[in-house]
Design a protein around this nucleic acid. Sequence first.
DNA 1: TTTGTCACG
DNA 2: ACGTACGTGACAAAT
Length: 883
Amino acid sequence: MKKNKLLLVDGNSIAFRGFFALYQSLERFKNKQGLHTNALYAVNTMLDNVLKDVQPTHALVAFDAGKTTFRHGFYEEYKAGRAKTPSEFREQMPYLRDLIEGLGMKHYELDNFEADDIIGTLAKSVDPNEFDVVILTGDKDLTQLASDNVTINVTIKGVSEIEAYTPAHIMEKYGLEPVQIIDMKGLAGDASDNIPGVTKIGEKTAIKLLKEYQTVEGVYEHVDEMKKSKMKENLINEKEIALMSKRLATINTNSPIEIAVSDLDYSGKNFEKLIAFYKEMDFNSFLAKLDTTDADVPVTPREEITYEVVEKIESAMLSSDMVFHIEMLDENYHTSDIVAVAWGNDKHRYVTTGDWALMDPLMIAYLENPELTKRVYDFKRLYVAACRYDISLEGVAFDVLLAAYIVASTNNSEDIAEVAETFDFYELDRDEKVYGKGVKRGIPEDESVFTEHLARKIHAIDFLYPKLYQELEERQQKELFYDMELPLARILADMEITGITVDANRLNEMKGEFAEILTEIEQKIYAEAGEEFNINSPKQLGVILFEKMKLPVIKKTKTGYSTAVDVLEKLQGESPIIDDILRYRQIAKIQSTYVEGLLKVIFSDQKIHTRYVQTLTQTGRLSSVDPNLQNIPIRLEEGRKIRQAFVPRKAGWKLFSSDYSQIELRVLADISGDEHLRQAFIDGQDIHASTAMRVFGVKTAEEVDGNLRRQAKAVNFGIVYGISDYGLSQNLGISRKEAKTFIDTYFEKYPGVKSYMEDIVRDAKDKGYVETLYHRRRYLPDINARNFNLRSFAERTAINTPIQGSAADILKIAMIKIDQRLKAEKMEATMLLQVHDELVFEAPEEELEKLQQLVEETMADAVDLAVPLRADSSSGATWYDAK
DNA sequence: TTTGTCACG
DNA sequence: ACGTACGTGACAAAT
């Protein structure tokens, strides 16, 4: 028989969590009456996810009733000292019940008891053979209930991430049994509930004690045997406090509740109620997404849309200032079939199915006419598609996707409907809903569904344009859009279309060589292990190394033993198998990802056509997919050989590569204004050696040996990343204390850098975002988080993003200028690849000298900083030789 | 689909 | 005491 599933939710705690998760956007979440709705919104998301996930047969949301509970009876200060709940939160609480009822769940509260006690009592009341219990809560108090049939899901960050506490997980995380969580709180206390605990004992110490003595009582039975220490004294003095703290933390699993599990049947949402609630709260996105297929309720009415399915194009249909769109169902626009072409404005919309429109002379003339402006969604995609029909798409004046990326509206998806929803436009379905996904993806059987969807896309793009334009204007990002991203899109499209020629024979040669090496190492590893196993499986490898061979466990992952490089390197002396595994891993990676991977994506023109994703990264960098040509090996010689397969497209041509020297540190010198860093670049010094001299107090450059320079280099990297002593210590394999000394000295010697970091973090906390030199923004919602990790991460991001992002901006500007100059000079040389600080070209040998001068000069002069920019270049018969 | 690992700047 | 370097994408195995 299938087991029942009981879902129990701590209503107060998840509402509170939700409120703070969306606190940053508090003012964005308001309904028409001015009621704040962020907590309701968050709770809806959380409950919706958990309902979908758990598929409960029974469900209840429990609430705390009133201010006092039985716990106050023996400890008045329980939960005292809490900040007053914000009024923006309190005003939402009454509506929470409506939401819960709409979702079809029961709710319950009980005087004198907390939600925890209700949940605990119900969880213990069911027969473990009949029920699996899932608890959803915002704090860890309930984890003490974990058992074979009870799992506690604790929300960790945002609204979608949860951590599941099972007995096994608790054992792994704390080394304790679930019931010992209570003892841990008895000793360590819990600041959020004002449970005192024993002075100077925190979680770590408590766990240590409990591992030895199991319970608080056990600790006191043996307290006399302990060595004399401050801790022992505290334990003895505060025995009463410890015992009371334990009592406070203990969930009452025998509360006098008046309901039973049999009252909690869950049979899906109450659509009528839920729709009314969503409407009242203006939750249009939830309304639009509501899957009412299995419910007999009215769907939200859609506005009618007028359009014409066209069989023959007439010139009256094509005019300036229209929206234009080409529909392709596959992500990869180099190969995807074109299934429709549509265009129009707010008065007329035209849809054609198939690709015939792209062969129509009137249409071609329209598309190629730069005077007739078009607005589009994803210019690069359309440009490449049009190019496949030998059409040069001109006159594109606006790209909604690019604009949405720039205004950082968090949503810059491939799907127009998703972007539209962030601007409260719900008149368009998601592609996935219309076309399906995976193997079932295709044009809908009902042709009118298909054509209407396209007409609605035209409508959506038309609707989004003025909104985005206004946003760009308000944020002073029009230059970033019109002078950087939009012109760049076309250059990237040209690079993608051109492609880079790959010597498949060379790759096949390597494939044979690597295959032989792999078989050899494989046999050696099997011999050393004493059995055959899958070396590629971290799980199987972990068993061999740490169980069979009993090697010391350095690090664990959430699922088992870590076998990552840094772990294996620490084990190198222990057994010869380690070296073989490292080498096997290295070769296997090259073989599968680069040799076999690249062979798979060579087109019939002998070229690889990657796609640059222009609207993905949080910093403004590009990314490259299908395949990724921005991570071709270079650091180790064996992998580097892959680059021998990248060749020019014609005999007598060469590959040419030019890369910025230390662009991120130069950007840092500019924006921090640190005089020492700036002077070092102005003087043309070796920057890592220069850092070494200052930080390690070395007088002359001659005294900087390789090791000092290496350490200085790591410090410089760390600075750019938003340094931490731990990170630097890991990187250099030194102690945390030593790392801290390095950092302190660095800040002493480069005070301008130090104040930049302080200023930018303060600025971010103030404004909620940081900017690059060219006004690219990144929002940092966690910058004021109470959670240390979230906040620290946001602080490092605040430091790093202006540096990494400005460097990305600069290379984009350089690309645009180089493109212009290559055209002006009518050169044959062609830009092929961009790798963050490097550009790769192919060119006839005779052009190389001129190309070098042109590229280096343009890169150096791309922008004007307080320090000089420098580009170094080289050329050769293959990418490998252009080093 | 998620996780662990590893390639790049 | 917390638990980390910043930004990506692809592969194989496990789920």
